[in-house]
């Protein structure tokens, strides 16, 4: 399988303090659904931001081959005060794939409608985002990322603040979308109980990669990645 993401000896520090990541090596193949887990402050979000080019490594090398990238940030929410409908949110995600000037084309409107339908919000497309439940809002943000037809979809704690059922539903949705659309998916979470049944591979991060393999190979104690014994 062709490689989507490759990190070689990557380190990163915010300012002059201790490094957030140290000597990380990681290879992700195209079409893979990878969970990145670890304790709070372990460097998961930093790793994702480095892969997406939002931060630059202080050492090492990063190669990301997919050019079309979607990103669902931690506690995905929009900073704006004005009322925003689901369709307007998802349309914003379509802009990078459409012409910049002038109104949206018919094909763009169809792509937006398809993305909304894919996450099961077709009957709420013109509802205000603020009137939806936390799980539905997350689905709307996933639709926004999908509207850009990403080859690489990066999600940072996408299930924070939603109940367990919604967490599993979102993970199942991502697994299905990944297969249907052939996307590479990077799923960051501080708890991986909700996704371990849906991913082929989990990477545990605590400043460095402390585990990289199948969820079934994880010792039971590591199912709580914040546990003191999580690191070897």
């Amino acid at each position: 399988m062709p490689v989507a993401v490759r990190l070689e000896h990557v380190s990163f520090a915010y300012g002059p303090g201790a490094p957030a990541l140290r000597d990380v090596d990681l290879t992700v193949e195209r079409g893979e659904f990878l969970a990145i887990a670890g304790p709070n402050g372990g460097g998961k979000t930093t790793l994702l931001r480095l892969i997406l080019g939002l931060e630059q490594p202080t050492a090492g090398r990063i190669e990301v081959s997919p050019r079309r990238r979607g990103y669902l940030p931690q506690r995905a929410q929009t900073p704006i005060d004005a009322p925003l409908t689901v369709r307007e949110l998802v349309s914003a995600g379509r802009v990078p794939r459409s012409r910049l000037l002038g109104p949206a084309r018919g094909s763009d409107r169809r792509a937006v409608r398809d993305a909304i339908d894919r996450v099961g919000l077709g009957d709420r497309a013109d509802r205000r985002l603020a009137t939806l439940s936390g799980g539905q809002q997350q689905r709307a943000f996933i639709a926004k990322a999908l509207a850009g037809e990403p080859e690489l979809l990066a999600l940072d704690e996408p299930t924070t603040g939603v109940d367990v059922e919604a967490q599993e539903a979102i993970a199942a949705l991502l697994q299905r979308l990944g297969r249907e659309l052939g996307m590479t998916i990077l799923y960051v979470s501080h708890e991986f109980g909700a996704v371990e049944d849906f991913v082929e591979r989990i990477v545990l991060i605590r400043e460095r990669v402390v585990f990289d393999g199948s969820p079934s190979d994880l010792p039971g104690v590591w199912h709580d990645p914040s546990h003191a014994h999580a690191a070897p």
């Binding site: 997406l52 080019g53 939002l54 050019r67 079309r68 990238r69 979607g70 990103y71 669902l72 940030p73 929009t78 704006i80 925003l84 307007e88 949110l89 349309s91 914003a92 995600g93 802009v95 990078p96 459409s98 910049l100 000037l101 002038g102 109104p103 949206a104 926004k144 990322a145 850009g148 990403p150 990066a154």
Partner: peptide, 20 residues
């Protein structure tokens, strides 16, 4: 003319950066 990209940046600036 630039309404859609201006809104895209307002709605999610980092997402807009990631998607070039």
């Amino acid at each position: 003319v630039l309404y859609r990209p201006l809104v895209a940046v307002v709605v999610d600036e980092e997402g807009a950066r990631v998607s070039n």
